[in-house]
Design a protein around this nucleic acid. Structure first.
Lengths: 208, 208
DNA sequence: AGAATACGCAACATCAATGTTGCAACTACG
DNA sequence: CGTAGTTGCAACATTGATGTTGCGTATTCT
């Protein structure tokens, strides 16, 4: 299945450090490398040390500390970084305006492509960072609005509970993102949406 | 909905300590208290310290160390302890012999009741303990056998992928177990099975 | 080229969690 | 009742991760 429009994966700028002064190009590269290494390393072992992250990034541990004062600051930056991509992924699918079913597929595909690369960071929604929490909360609202639109359009049953459906939807995306055999995102999105809508049951079973 | 038979919640004995000598009654009580406190504490914060666990159990930290030599040993014991209950929960639902749909409901209800109380411990399936891994693997097989039986009985569509369906099933149980408003297990089980079988979609939507 | 910035390295300081030990007081159990 | 087992408490040892600093070298940027 080909989706109506592709998620623009343009390179994003790192959020400017709180210090104010802009980063030199090599420093920004290093910072990016650290964030990516942190994601890789922490997704395998959430308790990985700064040392391990530094090694995975190919830099010295002190360099990591130069860019991120504390471990918490690193994880927080990681969460912010991933959250921006998450928000962009949702946004570019026009979840509030596209036809519900189209929006559902598109959002799913976009989010999957982010989640596959930033799984650990996106599991940090319970971040102490209020900005991250705010974005997650907004996305949650957007998602539930979309589901409500879908329900009103007859895509969902009229008796479904929206919060529960949303949680199931999130869980399905999470599962799909775990698939080691990285199929293409569209196939996974189809699987997710299909499962969400049709479930696994036969159309007319003899239910108890 | 009333289920055909109840999951027998009889008190289980703690696995005898490797040391050989049986525990005195008060010591066994303490050990149980520690395990329960560990579950409570670690489910809120997986990085909680031995100190916090001890406090939650109402004992001194040294007492925790007397019963569980190391932190790993405690978590391992917790995993073993919960795994036994997990296995018992599945077993008592007769997943291999009861009619598929009945078995599905019953297993779901039983597992939910365990998972609600032992959520953290059951998330330690990736335990280093081979016994735990073995039991989880067996249960996974049992689950897939059940799903296959359900498919052959016409409860599931003939084209569903069993491993994916199982993962979705696990994910639904996980979500249901998170419901803070502890509804009764049967209602949650109904929700899980219903969602798994029917999904959230309307019966005859105009699909793209 | 020159100034500013970034990096690796080594060394050090800190700290919190873990794990250990000894002893006195208490409790289960025969 | 007496013994063996259990607990709390205080004190100590250890360790691994974290965070800091200074300096020489390398890189970027203008």
């Amino acid at each position: 299945m080909t989706l109506p429009y592709a998620f623009p994966m343009k390179t994003q700028r790192l959020p400017a450090p709180a210090g104010g002064r802009p980063l030199r190009a090599d420093a920004e590269r290093t910072m990016r490398a650290i964030l990516e290494a942190a994601e890789r390393t922490l997704s395998r072992d959430p308790a990985a040390t700064m040392e391990q992250i530094a090694e995975a990034a190919g830099v010295a541990r002190t360099t990591v500390h130069r860019r991120f004062a504390t471990r918490d600051a690193l994880i927080d930056a990681l969460a912010v970084w991933a959250t921006q991509r998450f928000a962009a992924a949702v946004d570019s699918a026009h979840p509030d305006t596209a036809p519900p079913l189209v929006a559902l597929y598109q959002t799913t595909a976009n989010v999957l492509s982010v989640k596959i690369s930033w799984g650990f960071a996106m599991s940090q929604a319970s971040s102490a960072n209020p900005e991250v929490a705010r974005v997650y909360s907004e996305i949650r609202d957007t998602c539930e609005r979309l589901l409500r639109r879908a329900r009103e359009a007859g895509v969902l049953r009229t008796d479904v509970d929206i919060p529960w459906t949303r949680r199931v939807y999130y869980a399905l995306i999470h599962e799909a993102a775990q698939s080691r055999d990285d199929q293409d995102t569209d196939a996974l999105a189809t699987l997710v949406v299909d499962t969400l809508l049709r479930g696994a049951g036969a159309p007319h079973p003899d239910r108890l």
